[in-house]
């Protein structure tokens, strides 16, 4: 057992953990941030991608002890989290407010340009791969603000999506790139 400290989304998280604990387990079970999804556990699907000291990594293939003292940003860092508890969630109640943002008490104004573009372009269906896609694209667009569609496809090569066929994800990345270029320096 080792005691480690990782700064997750700017917050110091300490945990006494087994050396075998993976970073994804630390994020989900110790820091209690379940936005990062664990898909394949073998560095294939990319759903678990997070930013570790400025680089995008697959958190299922990094030991938590490797990240000791580092700073990690997860998908929750992209936009302000204003989750309010939803009372009596039923299929009917969700159907009643079927604007998911409303359901969690957030608003579109809070979203990161990438999230907004994913929303607009319908770049997710089940949403399982989305946290990974967002984190990888965030790093990629910071490095290459005006990518071609081909470059976007190469950037998300390590992220698997079974729903969209990637077309809409590339659309969303292009849209987000445009928004970020307009907003950026």
């Amino acid at each position: 057992m080792q005691t480690i400290t990782i700064h997750v989304n700017g917050k110091k998280v300490r945990g006494t953990i087994d050396e075998r604990m993976l970073l994804i387990e630390f994020i989900r079970d110790v820091a209690n941030l379940t936005g990062t999804h664990a898909g394949c556990w073998e560095a294939r699907c990319g759903a678990c991608a997070v930013e570790l000291d400025g680089n995008t990594v697959k958190s299922c293939n990094v030991l938590a002890v490797q990240a000791d003292g580092c700073s990690v940003f997860t998908v929750e860092s992209l936009s302000q989290q204003r989750l309010k508890p939803v009372e009596h969630v039923t299929t009917q109640s969700l159907a009643g407010v079927y604007t998911p943002l409303q359901a969690i008490g957030s608003s579109a104004a809070d979203l990161h340009p990438l999230q907004k573009a994913f929303h607009t372009c319908h770049a997710l269906q089940c949403g399982f791969c989305t946290p990974g896609m967002l984190m990888v694209l965030k790093g990629f667009l910071a490095e290459n603000p005006s990518p071609t569609r081909e470059e976007v496809r190469m950037a998300i090569a390590g992220n698997i999506c079974r729903c969209t066929g990637y077309q809409h994800i590339v659309d969303a990345a292009m849209m987000a790139a445009e928004t970020l270029r307009a907003a950026g320096p």
Binding site: T56, V57, K58, N61, I156, A157, G158
Partner: peptide, 9 residues
């Protein structure tokens, strides 16, 4: 080689 996230590590 490999993919973006793997190349970072």
């Amino acid at each position: 080689l490999a993919d973006r996230s793997v190349r970072s590590m």
